[in-house]
Design a protein around this nucleic acid. Structure first.
Lengths: 148, 148
DNA sequence: GTAATTTGGTTGACATGACAACCTTGGCGG
DNA sequence: CCGCCAAGGTTGTCATGTCAACCAAATTAC
C-alpha cells in the first residue's frame, strides 16, 4: 500500500476522481452558456452578489465565497465590467464595492432556472440520496486544510 | 423538489461538489509543479505515453485516453515539444506519432513518486475505503452519457 | 512619529482551454 | 477518373487561470 508509485487500483481511483468533476462542470457550464451567454464563472459571481440582498459586496468577501484569490477575481471582474454585468464602486478608503448592474441581474434571472435544471439533470437526479450525502461528507473532509 | 430554482440544500451540494474536485486537483498539480516543473497536464500526457510500452502513440489515441479534443491536445503537444518533452514523428500518411523524449522520460520518472505521494496525502489517505468506493461508483454514473 | 508590515487591489506576462475555420490524405460512389 | 466527404491534425482567436511584481491605504512596532 505504500510503494513509491500508485498501484493500478489507486490510479483508477485517481482518474475517476478527476473525471467526475470535470465532466459535470463542463456540462453545466455549457448549458448555461448556450442558453444565456454567461460562462459558469460569471454565473457564479453574479449568484453570490445577488445572494446577499443588496447585490453589492467587497471584493475580498466575494473572493472568499468563490474560493478564488484576489488576482483571479480582479481579472474576472474586469472582464465582467466590460460586459456591463457589474460595476466597481470605490468607497473612498482603499476598498472596492462590486455592484450588480441591471443587465447583470437580468442575465442572472435568465440563467437561474437553466442552472437549476442542469444541475439536477447532470448531478442530483442521477445519484441516490446516500451518494449525495457521501459527496457532501467527502467534500468537507477534502476541503479541510492539510495540516490540522 | 422540483421548483424552478435550487433549494439551499441543493445549492450546498452543488458547491460542495464543485469545490471537491478543484481543491484536490490544484494541490496535486502544485506539488508536481513545485518539485519537477511539470504541469499537471504535462504529467498526464507523459504518463499515458509511457504507459503503453514504447512511449509512442497516435494523437487520436492519446486524445481519447485523456478525454481531450484534438485541438486541445495539439496545442498542448506544441508546447511540450517546445519544452523538449516529446517529439512528433510523421508517419508518411497523415497520422502523427507522439514520442517521449529522453528528457520527457526523465522528468516523468522524477514526478511519479511525487504524484503518488501527493495523491495519497491529498485524497486517498483522508478517506475511508467505503468513501473511496463511493467515489468510483459515482464517477462511473456521472461519466455515462446523458441519453441512454 | 515613523519605519516595517499587513491588507486590499491592479497589472503584465504567460500557460491553458474552447471553438471554429482550415488543410491534407484516404476512401468511396459513380 | 472525378467529385465528395470523413478522418487526422493545425492554427487563430478569445476567455480563463496562475504567478509575481507592484501600488496605496491602514496597522503595528518601536
Amino acid at each position: 500500500m505504500s510503494d513509491k508509485l500508485l498501484s493500478p487500483r489507486e490510479l483508477r481511483v485517481w482518474h475517476a476522481f478527476k473525471l467526475m468533476g470535470e465532466d459535470v462542470l463542463t456540462r453545466v457550464g455549457r448549458d448555461i452558456s448556450d442558453a444565456t451567454g454567461l460562462s459558469g464563472s460569471e454565473f457564479g459571481v453574479l449568484s453570490r452578489l445577488a445572494a446577499i440582498g443588496k447585490g453589492e459586496m467587497r471584493q475580498q468577501v466575494l473572493a472568499n465565497m468563490m474560493g478564488w484569490d484576489k488576482s483571479r477575481l480582479s481579472h474576472q471582474l474586469t472582464r465582467m465590467k466590460a460586459r456591463k454585468l457589474i460595476e466597481r464602486r470605490s468607497t473612498g478608503n482603499n476598498t472596492v464595492l462590486v455592484v450588480l448592474t441591471r443587465l447583470g441581474q437580468q442575465k442572472l434571472d435568465d440563467a437561474r432556472p437553466i442552472h437549476a435544471e442542469s444541475v439536477r439533470r447532470n448531478l442530483l437526479s442521477r445519484l441516490t440520496s446516500e451518494q449525495i450525502d457521501a459527496i457532501v461528507r467527502v467534500s468537507n473532509i477534502l476541503g479541510e486544510d492539510e495540516d490540522e
